[in-house]
Each structure stands twice: as structure tokens, then as C-alpha cells.
Amino acid sequence: MLEIPKLNLKDKVSPQEWQTRVDLAACYRLVAMHGWDDLIYTHISARIPESDFLLINAFGLAFDEITASNLVKIDIEGNIIDADCPFDINPAGFTIHSAVHQARHDEQCVLHLHTNETIAVASLKEGLLPLSQYAMFALASMSYHDYEGLAVNADEKKRIQDDLGNANFMLLRNHGGLTLGKTIGDAFMHMYDLTRACQVQLQIMATGMDKILVEQSIVDGIKAQANIVHTGLTGGQKSWPALVRRVYRQDPSFAS
């Protein structure tokens, strides 16, 4: 069995960077715990506060092998910052993330996954339908991007940015889902809502029965209602500590 290089960066980076590393590693583990990972593929990236640098997974590691220290620090062009870093990144996967980070400096985290449910709904002509409460959150800030093959063409970045606009949810046609958030917790909760919305939609469609669609006026008002529920905090801020505690209980090595 090939051994993963052991790193310990806790006392070698700023407190802001270390906290971002711990939260991002927790997010990778949560994705694996939910069964949303895709072997060594797909990515979650996060901007280090007060810097122009990003963190992303090392190419070749499974999501349940990600730790705070083995995340790779890169610039917006995908260049690895630390000269002694023993890992590489997947340049094809970074195309999508760099496009989003370049356009949306206000958002810290970008999460892109290939779950069966998001691929299936992204491949339906009508896309996500207002069929559940989970769908309300996504539809209040939804966008779509047409499939252009593997994301290796730099020209596609501009089209991704244009299609995303100010949305926090995106279904990439025939490909999967993408969410972003001002915190890592926000991005994760957005993906949770999007995935559950897609799961419920497919289950409803499988019944073959007539569907009841929620009125657009309710979709339009869902953000204001969510602010009341979360007392001014975002869903990610409210739930993130509990989610991180769950990861610690399962395997605290993520924070090393």
C-alpha cells in the first residue's frame, strides 16, 4: 500500500489559514460521509481569508484521506505555492473553481460534486422544479451551465461566469452540481439543500402521479423567511459547528 506523505502545518501557517484548512478538511470528510464523493474526483476549494490564495484537495487522495495539512495551497492560476509540497492538483477540475473564484470574490468556498441526483436533474430539460422545501432554497438563487465536455478549455471559464451571475447554486447540464458560499459551512449547506431537492424530485417523478408545483411568489419570498428561521445567521453558520463535531466524533485525524 502506498503511504500518504505525512505533513503537519499547524504551526507553520497563519491562524486564519489553519482554521480554513480545518473547516475545508471537515467539509471533504462530510461529503464522503454522505456518500457524495466520486473516488478521487470532484473538488471543494476555499479562499484563505486576507490573502489571494486558495486551498484545494491533492489529486489522488480520497475525500476521507483529506486532512488540514495535506490540502494544497495554490494561486488563482492553479500554481502550487509551497515549493516542497509533495502533491499535485487536477488542472481540469480547477478550471471550474478558478472561474468562480475569479468572478465571485465575495464568496469563500466553491463546492462541485457529481452526485447521481444532481446529474439526473441537471440532465432534465426542465431542470429543478419547485416540488419541495429544499428546492425553494436552491431555486431562489439558481443558475445553469450547458455541458461542453471535460472542463479543460480556458475559454469555458467566461461562459461559466456569465451563466453563474450572482447565483449561489448551479446545475451543470449532464455533469453535476455546484454551490458557493461566504463560508465553507454555507457552501456545504447549499449543496445539502440542492442534493435533497434533486433526490425528492426524482422520487416524486418516479411515482408517475400528478405533481403539485409551489407558486413562484413563495419561491421569491423564501430568503426572507429563512432569515427569520436562522435569526439573521445563514444556514451554514447555524449548523456548521454541529457538523464539525460529527466529523470529530468519526475521525479527528482530519484536523491534523
Rank of each mutant, 00 (worst) to 15 (best):
L111M: 13
L111W: 00
L113K: 05
H114F: 07
H114Y: 03
N116K: 13
T118C: 12
V121E: 03
A122W: 06
S123E: 02
S123F: 04
L129A: 10
L131Y: 08
Y134T: 00
A135T: 04
M136T: 11
M136D: 02
L139Q: 06
A140S: 15
S141H: 05
M142K: 08
D146P: 01
E148H: 12
G149F: 07
A151I: 05
A151P: 01
N153M: 03
E156V: 01
K157C: 08
K158T: 13
Q161L: 06
Q161D: 11
L164D: 09
G165F: 07
G165M: 03
A167S: 15
N168E: 14
N168L: 12
F169Q: 07
F169D: 00
M170F: 09
L171P: 06
L171C: 10
L171F: 14
G176N: 05
G177S: 09
L178R: 03
L180T: 12
G181V: 06
T183L: 10
T183E: 10
I184H: 00
I184E: 02
A187E: 00
D193W: 10
T195V: 13
R196K: 14
A197S: 13
A197F: 08
A197Q: 01
Q201M: 07
Q201V: 06
I204H: 05
M205Q: 15
M205A: 12
A206Q: 13
I212K: 12
I212G: 00
I212F: 14
L213P: 01
V214N: 09
E215T: 12
E215A: 15
Q216P: 01
D220T: 09
G221S: 11
K223Y: 06
A224Q: 14
A224L: 11
A224N: 10
A224V: 09
Q225L: 14
Q225D: 11
A226G: 02
